[in-house]
Design a binder for these strands. Structure first.
Lengths: 147, 147
DNA sequence: CTTTCTGCAAAAATTTTGCACGGAC
DNA sequence: GTCCGTGCAAAATTTTTGCAGAAAG
């Protein structure tokens, strides 16, 4: 099964497990979340849905994302200056690299992260629950085009 | 001179350098930005200002923060779920630790960061321009209260 | 004096909520 | 049949914009 297929199934299972109904709108939303590589906004998801659900309401998108978020199946990414965006493919915290030119987002592996979390815990005395790490830069493709 | 005094002066200089007028409202806003340790929101700044400027407008706060941001003298921190917050004391990127209980934000020192940026550059081929790193957890004070 | 800045109010833009109907189970 | 979920509209937020008058330089 494809990666997005697995994510879709995991979300459906989580909904069933918590006795939430599987409405067509709800399923369509999790399908988009499980497939979108571009970290879509509510507005993106709403527009995408309108192709198959002409009468769908924005409130439905907001309410379902709220629900899916409460189940821990989507990662919410607030950016200053633009609306909140969502990652349903990898719902657990992970670093991103965002190309400021083409807005592409890549998920790198980072050895140093566990080390860093330890350092933070020791220095601050906080009980660290989660984190958010984004690098912003220009991707190799856009670097080439610049010249 | 105090740290906040230096920041205040740096912001005033930057305003002069770019031929922006030094209105009382503007000066009051940069004074708050240079002194606030709590990473205030626009709303926080607006309320604070009302003590000395009863008739001040929210639009003035928004417009001035936009200006100061364009001069690179304040760091904008967008969080999903709550409004944008600002750091005028350290306008260049640095890590934060956010207490999810009392919303306090503190600035830790982190040795591992340069190392990490190198790792990212090598792995991704991106030209890294900036980053954003926030840890979320429960601060020592709130940990204690919980029990 | 000139140009920018401010306050006010209206307008956008974004997210939440109340309510009655409809559909999943 | 029973609830939960949806669509719609209104409300609550948050941020931006237009304009006339005020004030900094």
């Amino acid at each position: 099964m494809s990666e997005s297929g697995k994510r879709y199934k995991a979300m459906v299972d989580k909904l069933k497990e918590h006795n939430h109904k599987l409405t067509p709108q709800r399923l369509a939303i999790i399908k988009i979340l499980s497939q979108s590589e571009g970290h879509p906004s509510v507005e993106d998801i709403y527009r995408e849905l309108q192709r198959n659900f002409p009468g769908i309401s924005e409130a439905t998108v907001y309410r379902n994302i709220l629900l899916i978020k409460s189940l821990g199946e989507v990662l919410e990414l607030g950016f200053a200056g633009e609306g909140t965006r969502y990652d349903g493919r990898k719902p657990h915290p992970h670093p991103h690299i965002v190309c400021v030119t083409c807005r592409k987002i890549i998920d790198p592996d980072l050895e140093s992260l566990n080390q860093m979390t330890k350092e933070i815990t020791q220095e601050s005395g906080f009980e660290i629950l989660t984190y958010r790490l984004d690098f912003f830069g220009i991707c190799p493709e856009c670097c080439r085009k610049k010249e």
